[in-house]
Structures are given as C-alpha cells and as structure tokens.
C-alpha cells in the first residue's frame, strides 16, 4: 500500500488525460495531435500504475507495458502517415485532409 492516496493519483491521470484530449480537439497541426495522443496514453498509464501500487499487484505494470507497446506502434504508423501527408499536401494542417477524394 503506497502512501499516496488513490484519489489524487486518479485526479492526476484525469487532468493529464483532459489536457491531451483538449490538445487533440483544438490543435490543427497533425504533429501536435500525435503529441497530445502521447499525453493521453501516458495518463492511462498513470491510472494503471497507481491502481496497481495501491492494491500491491503487478498487473498494473503489465498493462502499462502493453500501453507502451501500443504507443510505440501508434507513433511509428502515425509519423509515417504524416511523412506521406507532408509529401502529398506540403502541409501538416489536418484541414487539407477534409476532402474524401484526392484531387
């Protein structure tokens, strides 16, 4: 049982998740959207580690490692897509992607 109360860990995770969510919604640059997604995934990791440490189970850290794997794969694919987008549209603004069919 850790000395830190679970409520405060969850409040920290919620605030970080909210900041990342607002970033995903507000920013127009696709690179910032990816960074905000990282912040959100990190917040879920905080929640898992906090719960695992409060109940003294290693499951939380196992889930955190799976989240880490997910984040690595997501960033690799996302950045590759951004490189393609930069080549094709000469911009990282997501509004240029609003057409369904390419020109």
């Amino acid at each position: 049982m850790t000395a830190i109360p679970l409520e405060h860990i969850l409040i920290l995770a919620s605030i970080l998740f909210l900041i990342g969510f607002v970033g995903v919604i507000v920013r127009k640059n696709a690179l910032f959207i990816l960074m905000s997604l990282e912040v959100m995934l990190n917040a879920t990791g905080v929640a898992f580690i906090g719960a695992g440490s409060v109940w003294q189970q290693a499951d939380g850290q196992v889930m955190f490692m799976l989240i880490l794997t997910l984040a690595a794969a997501e960033v690799a694919v996302g950045l590759a897509l951004l490189i393609r987008m930069k080549h094709q549209y000469r911009s990282l603004d997501i509004d240029v992607l609003s057409d369904l069919k390419g020109q």
């Binding site: 990282e38 960033v75 951004l82």
Partner: peptide
C-alpha cells in the same frame, strides 16, 4: 508510487525512443 521498473521503462522507451522518433520526423518535415 513504488514502480521503479515502470519508471525506468518510461524514461527509456517514452522519453528515449518515441521522442527521438518525433525529433527525426520533425527534422524530415
């Protein structure tokens, strides 16, 4: 919180590997 292994993974994988990927991408852009 009592999870030093996760802390090390966070520094090595997140701050070490994923952020370097971001830096490479920004250099490419």
């Amino acid at each position: 919180m009592g999870a030093p292994f996760a802390a090390g993974l966070e520094v090595i994988v997140y701050a070490g590997a994923i952020l370097v990927l971001f830096v490479f991408a920004i250099m490419l852009f």
